[in-house]
């Protein structure tokens, strides 16, 4: 089948970009979306035009690298799927396909469809961990964890940090990402000692990075390739508010973005 692509092209961080149209004449329905772009890029290179830059790595839906908005939806039309596992059988011959990068102030475009997501790393640095040095742990089975809690924690831990939640949110909010980490650790007994501090510090860093606020529209959950529940955002709100208002924890002084 044939497709008409409209792709955001931007030379570098400083340049202004624009949408450019390309034909994708030989699309096999069994291809993945990224393989379709590979073929387009081979053609472009043959013609002496710069290929379209996009982040990708594992191509099996777990590394969280791939990041593009397809016809207005992060990761495209299939539910619970990353772009790398989106197959062309979900498109129809002659369709117009608009491909844009994640758009958020906190995710500046580096080139074409490639954005800088280091803000997520800084949110984790602010508290997305359990402080336990290597070698200091007790025997793993000394700490039973109810299966339901472990499973619930795992539901949150499934986040691959791709940033689709930010891309989908009309406010470019990172609530689902932050909530997933706060809940993953907060649901486990190991995560309790730092639970309050974690919530305060991670939210503070998230705000500093320039992400927007939550309007409870749940677009994030709708596009999340791991289908992480917005219930975790409620949980984060609860953790944050109770920590801020009722505990002695004030959080650490924030680190500025370098």
């Amino acid at each position: 089948m044939k497709l008409k692509l409209h792709v955001w092209r931007q030379k570098d961080r400083q340049s202004t970009g624009r949408m450019v149209a390309y034909d994708a004449p030989n699309v096999n329905p069994e291809m993945s979306f990224l393989e379709m772009l590979d073929v387009v890029n081979e053609d472009l290179t043959g013609k002496g035009e710069d290929p379209i830059a996009f982040d990708h790595d594992c191509r099996e839906g777990i590394c969280g690298s791939c990041s593009m908005v397809i016809n207005g939806v992060p990761h495209g039309p299939s539910k619970g799927t990353t772009v790398c596992q989106l197959h062309m059988r979900h498109f129809t011959d002659g369709q117009d396909v608009h491909i844009e990068p994640w758009r958020a102030k906190a995710f500046p475009v580096l080139q074409d469809l490639v954005v800088d997501r280091s803000a997520f790393d800084r949110i984790i640095q602010a508290g997305g961990f359990i402080s336990v040095n290597s070698g200091s742990a007790q025997d793993a089975n000394n700490l039973p964890v109810a299966k339901a809690d472990a499973d619930h924690s795992m539901d949150a831990a499934a986040c691959i940090g791709c940033g689709a939640c930010v891309a989908a949110c009309k406010n470019s909010a990172a609530m689902l990402f932050a909530a997933a980490k706060i809940s993953h650790l907060g649901l486990l007994p190991q995560g309790q000692p730092e639970r309050r501090r974690r919530a305060i510090n991670m939210v503070k860093q998230m705000d500093l990075e320039g992400f927007g606020n939550c309007s409870n529209q749940y677009e994030c959950e709708a596009v999340c390739p791991k289908e992480i529940s917005v219930g975790f955002i409620a949980r984060m709100n609860r953790d944050y508010l109770s920590s801020s208002i009722f505990s002695k924890e004030t959080g650490s002084t924030s680190k500025s973005e370098d």
Binding site: E100, K105, A168, K170, N171, S172, G210, F211, Q217, V223
Partner: peptide, 27 residues
Amino acid sequence: KLNLANRAARPQAYAVKTYRRASFASR
């Protein structure tokens, strides 16, 4: 105040934006 921050959080709008879940009321 929140709304202004939300607007600032996305300086460049999408050329095409499709909502999957957000209700008309919420928008």
